[in-house]
């Protein structure tokens, strides 16, 4: 590791210590932080819930970082794909009576095929173009998806009542069963994708294409096919994320925007193209959001501010992100 790299890592660590202490300091000022056992129980609950939420966030980020890594396409429609996943799950649940998690058995292949089609019809045209071109195209795609979803589903909020029971994790920490299930699902799916990329032949070819498409071609890798598979996997990841959103929260066609921004923040935080970074970034972001919300007066409204503040400062200190390396 280069010296400047090490220094930026220290600087980042110092910044993060400050960022995470800030809610506590403000909380002490306003008396929302107490030192009794009961308060620590609330704190523990919030941190634990943040960790669970972070796992789901991380899965959004993995899909986003995958497409970017392989094709240098910033997919501004990622959140809308999450939203589409939520609706697919909702339709399966309310009209076909399928369990939201069981529905993944057929929603994921559908999502994969939609991704392949998307790549063929739209994204192949923007691979290799300036990043802004791809950003504008996917931004337009996202708006179109919102509009179509409004036409089909209206802007009403939907939700799937699923596993609402309380799970008493420890004596003091309680959490919804759906949240626990979502976390386990998100982490397993992300891990499966990670292992696939790390060890399988096709996964290695995807990584190789991300690192250098021309050399991948020279190695006999059919890069066009890799692009199809990559977008297929990314859309499937988004749709899986949507299923997990649908069993926890209300959603409507405009919900996706929030998830796109969160995924961006996490990718920047964790380092582009870095999967372990995405997991850590997801956990960090969600925990910080919850700490801000818990301790700062009217903090629920300040959560987005905190998320983007974190993103901007990490970008300034360490443009490659937490786990990122300088690009060759």
């Amino acid at each position: 590791m280069e010296k400047s790299d090490v220094r930026s890592l220290y600087l980042l660590a110092a910044f993060l210590v400050c960022a995470y202490s800030l809610p506590f300091l403000i909380g002490i000022q306003f008396g929302t932080v107490r030192a009794d056992e009961q308060w620590f129980a609330y704190l523990a609950t919030v941190v634990f819930a943040g960790i669970l939420q972070g796992g789901v966030y991380a899965m959004f980020a993995v899909g986003l970082t995958l497409i970017f890594g392989v094709m240098r396409i910033i997919n501004a429609a990622h959140g809308e794909m999450v939203m589409m996943g939520a609706y697919l799950t909702w339709v399966a649940f309310f009209y076909l009576g399928v369990d939201p998690l069981l529905a993944l058995v057929f929603t994921l292949p559908i999502a994969f095929l939609l991704g392949v089609a998307l790549q063929k019809v739209l994204l192949n045209a923007v691979v290799g173009q300036p990043e802004l071109t791809a950003l504008l195209v996917t931004f337009g795609l996202g708006l179109t998806m919102i509009y179509v979803a409004e036409l089909i589903f209206t802007t009403d909020f939907r939700t799937i009542p699923y596993a609402p029971q309380t799970v008493q994790v420890t004596r003091t920490i309680a959490v919804g069963q759906n949240k626990l299930i979502s976390f386990v699902m998100a982490v397993s799916i992300s891990a499966a994708v990670y292992l696939f990329l790390k060890f399988s032949r096709l996964g290695k070819a995807i990584r190789a294409t991300a690192l250098n498409a021309e050399v991948a071609m020279v190695c006999g890798i059919n890069v066009q096919r890799i692009y199809l598979v990559t977008t297929g996997i990314a859309v499937a990841l988004a749709v899986a994320g949507g299923a997990l959103v649908s069993i926890q929260f209300g959603f409507n066609p405009e919900t996706g925007v929030v998830y796109t921004l969160q995924a961006f923040a996490i990718v920047i935080l964790g380092g582009r193209g870095h999967y372990v970074g995405a997991l850590i970034g997801g956990l960090m972001l969600a925990v910080l959001e919850n700490l801000v919300s818990l301790m700062i007066p009217n903090g629920t409204a300040a959560v987005e501010l905190a998320a983007y503040g974190l993103m901007i400062f990490v970008l300034l200190i360490r443009p490659g992100g937490l786990m990122g390396v300088k690009e060759a």
Binding site: R201, K204, A205, R207, A208, L211, V215, G220, I221, V325
Partner: peptide
């Protein structure tokens, strides 16, 4: 031109992708 973020072995494996 090598795949910098892959191991030497993985690079060679990629050479035998077909």
């Amino acid at each position: 031109v090598v795949f910098s973020q892959m191991t030497v072995r993985e690079n060679l494996e990629m050479g035998a992708y077909l």
